[in-house]
């Protein structure tokens, strides 16, 4: 009887081993994910303050530095550089890549295509170039490393000499 159960024990053991590997991967990434989450929260708070400082169309001049806009507690993973009177570059450094991939959505979509209800599911990947907006937007989809956004006001295009 024990022999006939051995093959089932081996199969279940393989699945258990796979589970342990996934557990190790998740635990290794836990601290980096927590750090990235703190960075993203700080970046969102700074973005709100910067957008309120100059208006969402950057009508006013960009601040020379973050402390000038009243932001004194920016973490080292966030950098601000003024590139013009009405433009600046905002960079955030992440430890891990983040996208909106969802395995359950993917599986549902594969099966749903069988009943004619699926879509061309593709997880949104981070756009490798830098974004350019008239206001600062922190994208939750990002890649590992430095992610920058260039912000320039509409008035900068017309009154660049001011």
């Amino acid at each position: 009887m024990q022999r006939s159960l051995t093959k089932y024990r081996i199969g279940l053991g393989i699945i258990g081993l796979f589970t342990l590997v996934i557990l190790a991967v998740v635990l290794v990434q836990a601290s980096a994910t927590r750090q990235d989450q703190k960075t993203e929260d700080s970046a969102n708070n700074i973005a709100t303050e910067l957008n309120n400082y100059n208006g969402y169309s950057l009508t006013g001049p960009a601040p020379n530095s973050l402390p000038e806009a009243g932001i004194n507690n920016a973490p080292s993973t966030i950098s601000y550089t003024k590139t013009g009177r009405h433009s600046y570059r905002f960079c955030v450094t992440y430890k891990l890549t983040s996208n909106d991939f969802s395995a359950s959505s993917l599986a549902q979509n594969v099966v749903a295509r069988g009943v004619g209800a699926g879509t061309n599911y593709n997880a949104n990947q981070y756009y490798q170039g830098s974004y350019s907006y008239s206001y600062l937007y922190i994208n939750p989809i990002h890649h590992k490393g430095v992610n920058c956004q260039d912000v320039s006001g509409y008035t900068a295009n017309f009154n660049s000499s001011i």
Binding site: F18, V26, Q29, A30, T33, S98, F101, A103, A123
Partner: peptide, 15 residues
């Protein structure tokens, strides 16, 4: 996709 945000829920199901 090996990121934490993708794997944590399937891991909870498996565990």
């Amino acid at each position: 996709n090996y990121s934490f945000s993708v794997l944590y829920f399937p891991l909870a199901l498996l565990l």
